[in-house]
């Protein structure tokens, strides 16, 4: 198991894809969180947004990463599998370790440092962008509070889980383009629509919090941007660890299905 993990770790950090994606993501988050923070600060100083509202909104800005940008860790995690199928390097990989479940488990384990690396970059980007936005807007960024650091850690945790979901998704889809299309379609279209649809019905709205973005928002402290935008709020949002468990369940379901349906197949 150890050789497989070391191998996966080396494979990941010896290509350029991960840091190019991470860099793009970080730049994007600095810009978006700066814009949002500045807007909220402007509302507070000019349009009478109350201090308590502002303080409730601040974690949302700092926690923007996992709820808005989880596409990036998902794609990076998925690439650990899909890149091998795309370049057919899955052949030397399975030659070196014919027990395919060992390879896949190693990809999951090696996904943790990947998730941490991406998570630190993404979270820092929001702190920097948001902090600068609030400061230039003329309000206290509230960066040096104890809850901020908890949120910081939870945000990284969310990234890690998303990277692992990505590994599972990569196992299920195995096509690089397929993963990107699926992730974009789901996060940008299906999930927001499902969120709205579920919230229309009293009985079904309880399910909305189990949608990936909502569960992710629960991990970072009920700061989900989509739940906020849908106006209905989350119907008794999940706790931090419940959210993490829901997300992990997605990853496990994808991974197990992928292993049974795809990974065990003949490689030719």
């Amino acid at each position: 198991m150890i050789p497989a993990i070391v191998s996966e770790y080396r494979k990941f950090f010896s290509t350029r894809m991960w840091w190019i994606l991470t860099l793009c993501m970080a730049v994007f988050f600095v810009a978006v969180s700066f814009g949002m923070a500045w807007l909220f600060a402007y509302q507070a100083t000019h349009n009478g947004l109350s201090d308590s509202m502002l303080q409730a909104l601040q974690p949302t800005v700092y926690g923007l990463g996992p709820s808005m940008g989880y596409i990036i860790p998902v794609i990076i995690g998925a690439f650990a599998v899909t890149s091998e199928y795309r370049h057919n390097t899955i052949v030397p990989t399975f030659l070196a370790e014919p027990r395919r479940w060992v390879v896949m488990l190693a990809k999951v384990v090696a996904g943790v440092p990947m998730g941490v690396a991406v998570g630190i970059a993404g979270t820092l980007a929001c702190l920097v962008g948001g902090g600068l936005g609030f400061t230039t807007g003329g309000v206290d960024p509230m960066l040096w509070t104890s809850t901020m650091w908890t949120n910081f850690a939870l945000s990284i945790l969310a990234y890690v889980i998303w990277a692992l979901i990505g590994v599972g998704l990569g196992m299920l889809i195995t096509s690089q383009v397929g993963v990107i299309i699926t992730v974009l379609a789901f996060t940008q279209l299906i999930e927001p629509l499902a969120n709205i649809a579920l919230n229309q019905f009293a009985g079904a709205s309880v399910l909305a919090k189990f949608l990936p973005a909502a569960a992710s928002g629960s991990v970072t402290g009920g700061t989900d941007i989509y739940a906020m935008m849908s106006m209905t709020g989350t119907d008794g949002a999940l706790g931090v660890w419940q959210g993490a468990a829901v997300l992990a369940a997605y990853g496990i379901v994808f991974g197990v299905l992928g292993y049974v349906l795809r990974i065990r197949r003949d490689v030719s």
Partner: peptide
């Protein structure tokens, strides 16, 4: 060299 280093752990 990185290609070989990725297989190296398996080869010990």
């Amino acid at each position: 060299i990185n290609h070989l280093m990725a297989i190296a752990p398996y080869a010990g």
